[in-house]
């Protein structure tokens, strides 16, 4: 796959949040301020890259040879949960500054559907005939983790920017909170939809 096509797909036309609806909970929950949205985005991107790096070999070299692919949900969720826990401990020990700014988002990332979603997406390509091209190799898996993570960051930071303006307006009472956020996201999704037509 052409790398530019891959970048456009991950950031816009196949955007995890606005097109595939993965990771909506943090998208709605942690998008009040741009700073926290950026922190969440970076945490998700980092965990996505790590997840791809670990789950892809586990699926290709452990689950498939043992013919226990059907256990992938259990294995992936355990691997991801322990991975996030380890990352948290590592940051706490070696980079307290980074920990204080990103640490609070890490536990939330474990139960983010975007993480399990990317693991499922990159490993689904293995079971369908194991074609060795860039998108299906380990490097491709890690790259797509990074790009989809950046797509998530882009969407959540943009929404936080919009919300910081929208929340100051005088909005009808029943629309305050989630409804107006969802309607804002609706207009963002429309803008991103244009890229699906291009691609």
């Amino acid at each position: 796959m052409d790398i530019i096509t891959m970048i456009i797909a991950a950031l816009f036309s196949q955007n995890f949040v606005l097109v595939q609806f993965l990771g909506i909970c943090p998208f709605l929950g942690v998008s009040k301020k741009i700073d926290s949205a950026l922190g969440m985005g970076i945490a998700v991107t980092a965990v996505m890259v790590l997840t791809c790096l670990v789950t892809y070999p586990i699926y290709a070299y452990v689950l498939i040879p043992l013919k226990i692919q059907y256990l992938y949900i259990l294995v992936f969720i355990l691997v991801i949960a322990s991975l996030v826990q380890m990352l948290e401990m590592f940051l706490k020990k070696f980079s307290p500054g980074l920990y204080s700014s990103l640490g609070i988002y890490l536990p939330l990332v474990t139960t983010n559907c975007a993480i399990l979603g990317i693991a499922k997406t990159v490993t689904a390509t293995v079971s369908e005939g194991a074609i060795v091209s860039m998108a299906f190799s380990l490097g491709g898996a890690v790259l797509s983790g990074l790009l989809y993570g950046l797509g998530f960051t882009l969407a959540i930071v943009l929404l936080a920017g919009l919300r910081s303006k929208v929340d100051k307006l005088n909005i009808a009472k029943p629309l305050r909170g989630f409804p107006i956020t969802l309607i804002t996201a609706c207009f963002m999704a429309m803008a991103f939809y244009v890229f699906t037509l291009v691609a």
């Binding site: 989630f178 969802l182 207009f187 429309m190």
Partner: peptide, 12 residues
């Protein structure tokens, strides 16, 4: 996808 966000918002 835009319709999904709008419908959900209006429903809430």
């Amino acid at each position: 996808s835009a319709g999904a966000f709008l419908t959900y918002g209006v429903f809430i």
